[in-house]
Design a protein around this nucleic acid. Structure first.
Lengths: 131, 131
DNA sequence: CTTGCCTCTGACGTCAACGTCAGGTCTTAG
DNA sequence: CTAAGACCTGACGTTGACGTCAGAGGCAAG
């Protein structure tokens, strides 16, 4: 076990593994959030002898992907359904249907937001002439 | 008091008023939602002698505006702050700041969503080649 | 060895926009 | 007059993605 720039790293064969705090920091989320993702079946972790979670550094990318999807309004359930598509690189009919449905949902949200934006702009415009 | 096409209407002077159920239907929300908006200070209502809420028909437009703003991620608190800007037709510095901030927030959400859309499209594209 | 930070597992708290239920009143069609 | 809806006021329940706290253990530095 070595220490590199403040981040404790466990070398298992050639694979460096980081602990939950480091993952959380590098992904920009809380430690609680990472544990939550595991609980929801989105993220798995190796365990050290003493039971501490150990992650490969790529896990940070995956966590950021979760954030993107949450921001897009997907539930953790949907994201869980999404992961096999990514990991296996192929989809069945049901999965393709789900992907299209979510895509459409997000597109609708975008147009909703743009509509709201226009309404806000109207208000700003109107009241700008009457300060 | 008259009945017009199934909608009970109260004539007070020249102003026709509708009851909460009619407002809810014409705005496409639940009765509970309308009461909630009143509780949050977004909507006021005249009361009949027996205490029932009475609304001018334009209230439906206002309720739809609430829906737009909620869909854009504004809280009822923010919407309440917004209403005087609309009703009075002018804004002070603080209000203008708030309007700009919310505008910017929504714009960020849009780009987030578009980013998520691209990621989903990538997945769809990749897996489409491997059915 | 101890100090200080990190991690662990529960488990309860939060927040917003309502849903839902209870128990009672109003209104109107028939 | 009566029965069926619509409406009233509380007040508790729901959902999702975590926050937060408690109590206990792990681990590198001095």
């Amino acid at each position: 076990m070595v220490r590199t720039k403040g981040v404790r790293v466990v070398e298992v064969g050639q694979v460096p593994l980081v602990r939950i705090g480091d993952l959380a920091r590098s992904a920009g989320v809380s430690v609680r959030a990472v544990r939550y993702y595991e609980q929801q079946g989105l993220l798995s972790a190796q365990r050290s002898a003493s039971g501490q979670r150990l992650y490969p550094p790529e896990a940070a990318e995956r966590v950021r992907f979760f954030q993107d999807m949450f921001a897009a309004g997907l539930s953790s359930r949907r994201i869980a359904e999404l992961l096999p598509c990514i990991d296996l690189g192929h989809t069945d009919a049901e999965q393709r249907h789900m992907l299209q449905a979510e895509r459409e949902r997000i597109r609708e949200r975008v147009t909703e937001l743009q509509s709201a934006l226009r309404r806000l702009d109207q208000i700003i415009e109107v009241t700008a002439t009457h300060p």
